[in-house]
Simulated scan of single mutants.
Amino acid sequence: MSGNVFIDIKKVNRVYRDTNGNPLYALKDIDLEIAKGEFVSIVGPSGCGKTTLLRLIAGLDRPQSGSLAIEGQEITRPSHEQGYVFQQSTLFPWASVHDNVAMGLKARGIYKGREDQVKNYIDMIGLTGFEKSYPHEISGGMAQRVAIIRALINEPKVLLLDEPLGALDAFKRIELQALLLDVWTKTNTTMVMVTHDVDEAISLSTRIVIMTPRPGQITDIFDVNLGERDRNNDDFIELRKKILEVLHIAISQPQVEYNL
Rank of each mutant, 00 (worst) to 15 (best):
V183K: 15
T189W: 12
E238T: 07
D8L: 01
Q117T: 02
P164K: 12
T189Q: 15
I110P: 15
D197C: 01
I202F: 08
R14Y: 06
E245N: 10
E131G: 06
V12T: 03
L179I: 00
F6T: 01
L226M: 00
V192H: 04
L60K: 00
K172V: 08
N100S: 09
L180K: 11
H196R: 02
E163C: 09
G216F: 01
L168I: 08
T206N: 14
F222E: 00
Y25S: 14
T195G: 14
V40H: 11
L247T: 08
I138E: 12
E81Q: 12
E81A: 12
E228W: 02
I34Q: 08
D220L: 09
R108K: 13
L159T: 00
E200N: 13
A250M: 00
Q73M: 02
F236W: 00
H80F: 09
Q64H: 15
S252W: 07
K242C: 13
V101D: 05
C48E: 11
T190W: 11
G21V: 05
D8C: 07
A151E: 01
F92Q: 03
R108D: 13
I249L: 10
P63H: 11
N154Q: 04
L181M: 14
T90F: 15
G141M: 10
A107W: 11
F92P: 14
R17E: 15
P215A: 06
Y258W: 06
A250S: 11
E38D: 07
Y258V: 12
N20H: 14
L60S: 11
T189D: 08
S205E: 08
D199F: 06
Y134D: 05
R150M: 05
V194K: 13
R214V: 06
V5C: 08
A167V: 10
K242V: 01
A58T: 01
L54H: 06
Q88C: 13
K119G: 03
A147H: 13
D199W: 06
D235N: 11
L226E: 00
Q144Y: 05
D61P: 07
V118C: 14
S133G: 04
S252L: 06
D61A: 04
L27P: 04
R173T: 04
S79C: 12
S67T: 11
V40R: 04
Q177I: 03
E155P: 15
T219H: 05
V5A: 09
V85R: 12
F171K: 08
L161A: 07
H136C: 05
V183I: 15
C48I: 05
N225A: 09
V146S: 06
I243D: 12
R77K: 13
G66M: 02
T212S: 12
V198D: 08
L204W: 03
G66F: 01
L68N: 07
N4T: 01
L68W: 07
L239T: 01
V194I: 13
R207F: 05
N188G: 10
D235E: 02
M1T: 15
P93Y: 01
L181Y: 08
L105V: 09
V97N: 13
K106A: 14
N13T: 07
D197H: 06
